[in-house]
Design a protein around this nucleic acid. Structure first.
Length: 221
DNA sequence: GGTAAGATCCGCT
DNA sequence: GCGGATCTTACCT
């Protein structure tokens, strides 16, 4: 759950991004998150990564956004204050991590799709036992969440500078290296170029167009 | 109360 | 490159 205002002023560790950074439309925030570093501290240890790929979801105007149909128990965090984590469970086995953006009346979020692990690699490798190479550790939204150790428990946590997360300014990449294109795995509004990534980064996930899943024939035969 | 689809990943061919 | 795994959510009757 969101921490109270006493956490606004963090004395320990490097300075976090200002909260106002997230109080803007997700389409503006998303490309500016590239190159920033996200630190996640849990009882097992700390993992830090540099964001290389993100996607914007624009609240009520965006059919692909979980906020499109209004508030529900699942997406309630998206309608709360910006700068908090929206974690959802999908495909029966994966968690994905978003940062809530946008003015309260226009909720949105940025899905953190991929990153380069820059700290706590040992712990990240232990959590991601199936990774064969280090650039696989957080290559894809569910892998990123797994490398950080994120699950439903972190839903609603402060990402700006709470006890678990801290989003550090880092070093943004040159504008010439920032690319945008269609979002991955999204069935609606696939024509809007709201996926952003850093060109040439090994940790950027390969683009996959949305493929509708057929129901298993074995179960009904 | 039932069902269809999903902001995915992994292993096998 | 393709299909299976696995379960939650939201919409429909």
């Amino acid at each position: 759950m969101p921490t109270d205002s006493s956490a606004e002023h963090q004395e320990d560790g490097p300075a976090a991004l200002p909260r106002a950074f997230f109080d803007r439309p997700s389409t503006e925030v998303a490309p500016e998150l590239l190159g920033r570093r996200l630190r996640c501290t849990l009882p097992e240890g700390t993992v830090e990564l540099r964001l290389t790929e993100v996607e914007a979801y624009q609240g009520p105007d965006d059919p692909a956004s979980h906020a499109f149909r209004g508030p529900t128990a699942r997406n309630a965090v998206m309608f709360g204050p910006p700068g908090h984590a929206y974690v959802y469970f999908t495909y029966g086995m994966h968690f994905c991590l978003n940062v809530v953006c946008g003015p309260a009346l226009h909720p949105g979020g940025v899905l953190l799709r991929a990153g380069e692990v820059t700290g706590g690699a040992e712990l990240a490798r232990a959590r991601r036992a199936t990774s064969r190479r280090d650039h696989d550790l957080a290559q894809g939204p569910a892998r990123l969440a797994q490398a950080l150790g994120v699950d439903r428990t972190q839903n609603g946590e402060d990402v700006v500078g709470g006890p678990v997360f801290r989003l550090l300014p880092g070093t943004p990449p040159p504008a010439a290296l920032i690319r945008s294109g269609p979002r991955t795995g999204v069935s609606t509004a696939a024509d809007t170029p709201w996926r952003f990534w850093i060109e040439g980064e090994a940790s950027v996930s390969p683009y996959r167009a949305h493929t509708p899943r057929r129901r298993s024939l074995g179960k009904t035969a």
